[in-house]
Design a protein around this nucleic acid. Structure first.
Ligand code: SF4
Ligand code: SF4
Lengths: 135, 135
DNA sequence: TATAAGATGTATTTTAAATACATCTTTAAA
DNA sequence: TTTAAAGATGTATTTAAAATACATCTTATA
């Protein structure tokens, strides 16, 4: 059970932006600081933009900044938006309906759904501003 | 975020065995019922044996049965044992220590750890015997 | 003692994620 | 008004893990 690097990278970007408020941060700066493939970061950043977490300015002196301040962003929200799928087990996947012969009768489905919600609920309890580096 | 099919298959096997107590169930029977690659099921079953959930008898009239009764097995325990890794993010992986430059300073680590525990705690609250088919 | 069952090890296939590459568009400073 | 710096977008390739397949060995009992 793991989140994708894509989601982890998204969180790193948001943390960095939160630590540099009122600035335009470039993807290259992020890529260098985190030592992450710039090409991949571009996609993460693009996705963060689509989901409304960040704004971008093109051209000279362009860069990225948070759409909302860090104390207005819940970690759970970021994970929900950035993680592509939460198909904990096969029957959660709309494209795999009926593959498992006990689907509909198995009570694991609802249990795992509750477990997933507990996971996200815990993340909802923390704001991006509370995640910033200790020292 | 998803569990491996391996873990899901393991749960299916345990559910089936729990529904057929005092019987020896063959892998072939399981493979047919669940329509799962027999070869793959063999590995799942073997792993369930290693982890002490089931016993097996070889030879004619052999088969599998639960080591403990279904009301003595917590779902969380099965998931903890069968899921190969719980490296929610990169820094959870012992082989990736120090790759993320903010590791040690980022408070996401402990937050995600708590979230993971909440996920498993929810699963710990249900026994295998409570998961059996409704009807 | 024949055969049905699981055990074990290796190899291949499949899939999704991660990464790389190429090119286009926007913007503001020079 | 030109130009370079920045992000946007689309496609292709690589990687790694999971899933599946194949082959052979061991055990137990009818
Ligand atoms: S119905 Fe139960 S056993 Fe089947 S895929 Fe869903 S959770 Fe797993
Ligand atoms: S330290 Fe924080 S940002 Fe880095 S891998 Fe761990 S959770 Fe992600």
């Amino acid at each position: 059970m793991q989140l994708t690097l894509h989601t982890d990278y998204a969180l790193r970007v948001l943390i960095y932006l939160a630590m540099h408020p009122n600035q335009r941060v470039t993807i290259t700066e992020l890529s260098t600081f985190f030592n992450i493939s710039r090409n991949h970061l571009v996609k993460v950043v693009h996705n963060l933009g689509l989901k409304g977490f960040i704004q971008s300015v093109r051209g000279k002196n362009g860069g990225l900044y948070l759409s909302r301040s860090a104390d207005q962003i819940r970690v759970g929200e970021v994970v929900r938006q950035m993680e592509a799928n939460f198909h904990i087990v096969e029957c959660f996947n709309p494209q795999k309906q009926g593959v498992c012969p006990i689907q509909g009768k198995c009570k694991l489905t609802s249990l795992l759904c509750r477990a997933k919600e507990q996971f996200l609920k815990e993340l909802d309890g923390t704001l991006l501003s509370e995640v910033l580096l200790n020292k």
